[in-house]
Amino acid sequence: MNPAFSVVVFTVATGAGQGLAVAVALALLIGGPIETPFVRVALAVAIVLLVVGLAASFFHLGRPARAWRAAAMWRTSWLSREVIVLPSFIALVAAWWWVSGDATSVLATTLLPLAALAGAVLLWYCTAMIYACLRFIEEWAHPLTFVNFSLLGLSSGLMLATALTALAGANPVLVPIAAAAAAAATLVAWMARASALRRNAAIRHRSTLQSATGIRSPRLVQTSMGMSAGSFNTREFFHRASLAALARIRLATHVLAFALPCLLAALVATGALPALAGVVAMLVQLPGLIADRWLFFAQAKHPQNLYYQVVS
């Protein structure tokens, strides 16, 4: 697939917003040393990220003014379900932010955080299923797609929470806790993503040129795709990056999205590095997340590509 930058930004930004909301919710529910002013700042950042993601998604539409129609087919379409769940989740987090000033209310400290946890998981599930339900895109049609969308969101959200503890004047006790959680989540996310990347690289696709054309000959090659200068089919489904560029982006994913932020967060957690290193970890991870999501799309080989191999 040819990665659409709007969708890359959308999934990275909303994923981090969800992860941050989950981090705050978990801290409150476990009874961590998290104070009200910090909760409000973190939730505000989460809302901004979610809204940025929602705005980015509009850039993927040919007819953004008709976007409201996309809520119609929730009975059959995961995209439609996401279109309903995302604004609902934003509204939920906004409501939580609205009441979060009162640290004694059960609504702000228990009920809405629980609802936000459920909402975040539901939204990750909808987002992942948009891709995982396409059975013939075999790189996506796997439970690891959901695992990776949620774990990467959680990792980036916790990394952001760590950075915020350093910047927003949180209780200093919170810094190593957030950093440790971020390091752990990033490590688990790395293992899950690495196994998905390995699986995808080794896939033997079910569709072949023989099944695509029904021509049984063992040696079958295309001599013309039927047009000379490309079409929607060649623009939308081929990323056109060189193998060397793909290798660089894969390396960037491993190092920037996972290894380096994980290491930095672990060092902040142990106290070997000051809290501000958490900010560096978050800034390092951002390009890594973009690279990783780009790779998620680029690595998916659409079966229609079998029909578009040779111009001649």
Binding site: L220, Q222, T223, S224
Partner: peptide, 9 residues
């Protein structure tokens, strides 16, 4: 579209 394929050796 009309595409063209070559089969066989």
């Amino acid at each position: 579209r009309v595409q063209t394929y070559e089969a066989g050796v």
